[in-house]
Design a protein around this nucleic acid. Sequence first.
DNA 1: AAGTTTGAGATGTATAGACAATTACAGTTA
DNA 2: TAACTGTAATTGTCTATACATCTCAAACTT
Lengths: 252, 252
Amino acid sequence: MVIQAEKIDKSSVIPIYYQLFKLIEEQIRKGDLKPGESLPTEHEISLRFEISRMTVRRAIAELVSAGMVYAQQGRGTFVATPKLDNIVFELNDFNQEIKERGLNCKSTLLEAKIIRADKELRERFQVGEESKRFLYFRTVFSAEDERLSYEVKYTIYSKSRPILESELKDPSLPGLIATHTEYVPMSAKKVLQVAVCTEEEAAILGIAPNSPVFLVEQTIYDPDLKPVGWSKAVYRGDRYKLTSYDGWYKKD
Amino acid sequence: MVIQAEKIDKSSVIPIYYQLFKLIEEQIRKGDLKPGESLPTEHEISLRFEISRMTVRRAIAELVSAGMVYAQQGRGTFVATPKLDNIVFELNDFNQEIKERGLNCKSTLLEAKIIRADKELRERFQVGEESKRFLYFRTVFSAEDERLSYEVKYTIYSKSRPILESELKDPSLPGLIATHTEYVPMSAKKVLQVAVCTEEEAAILGIAPNSPVFLVEQTIYDPDLKPVGWSKAVYRGDRYKLTSYDGWYKKD
DNA sequence: AAGTTTGAGATGTATAGACAATTACAGTTA
DNA sequence: TAACTGTAATTGTCTATACATCTCAAACTT
């Protein structure tokens, strides 16, 4: 990994540490520095840019607090993996709670198939006629044999690759995209709404039709902000809630 | 404001900057340093503790990133005010959007009165028989003459102070607590659920009974984590949604 | 062959000092 | 009075250096 030294202007009014921070951030965003890869050592960077090591550390501190890299004493500094595995907001706290309580929970694949693209899908993914096929998944999440949520997922089909149930150990949408397509999931947009469930959803979840539910739509983007995945999930309103704490007190 | 220098152990394995960070954090939490008050200057602190100014800056940087203080070049460093004005999560983004769009929005006070404490209220606020009276508010939030949300608020009544509508410019629960009680709102817990609205709520909001709504319960705590306020708000499900972005890309 | 020690290299903490940028305020001037 | 100016105080940036702590692997010992 080579960082171009000439991109730092030491006489600029913009602080050196900030220029360096932006420079490395750009390398990561463009993919020149991939998750898991190591940054040059602080010593190397300070030599290459002819700046103090403390200034390099200031830039790296910014990257750390932005969650883009992590440092390990004695080893080095590494590019972090984007956290896209959460289902939504703090809803995953609930799932963590399930595990902490030792409850028996699992994801069940109801259906997985290749479908033909229709107009709505092509618009949602901003693709033309050339993209003919999409992958389609339907899954249910349950705990203690009670069905809690139901999710439908779509991704562009681009790899000639069989859909193996064994690969569905990571049923998250970013995981499916990484496994079944050539795209790299990079960022996500999530929209949470309230709704009343349809008859189909009610039957799957075992609740009364028109019960209130959380409705979460998620769009996954690749590094170029091209949509590469979309999902719609329904969470039982009587089993999920979101909790947050404000103020000065730390969460740990 | 005096910070006791003897509380720093320079020979400890715990970093000096971290000890100082914790020391100042404690002063703020205990109320010795109040919001708006200024910290001693970096130079003063470094003299008093006989440590380097850079070490002081490191401690203050931690406080800044924790949102507990803010620094102004040329002026000083000041204790921040806890941000407790948001209604909940990103729902306030919606209200910001209203203002940005130039929509005409307002809060209307439906009712404000002193009520007698019942058993449920006393349990919720963890007070005994000595607290006889509570303040009770009912408000509606509307935009473009459409009612969007309805909220009920309770606080302990401890000041002999008339309830003036002119004081309700800040109708937020922390604002009401600061105005009408002797307590200091310091942190908050918020729980968001989905529900179907009651007949009363439906009538107030002008929607059909049993329509899906966001239900947000909020508890406000003082610096000793004593509950000093509680509210329950209902947001029209067809008018509010929550959006969030994950990944590396900044929100700005 | 297995375990131990040693050392190089990496990040973490701390210091002392220099200068820049901004603010507030007192003093000066029109 | 009003506007300008200079100065001190305060935070912001940057350097150069020293030593601590941690990791890993090579060299050594048993």
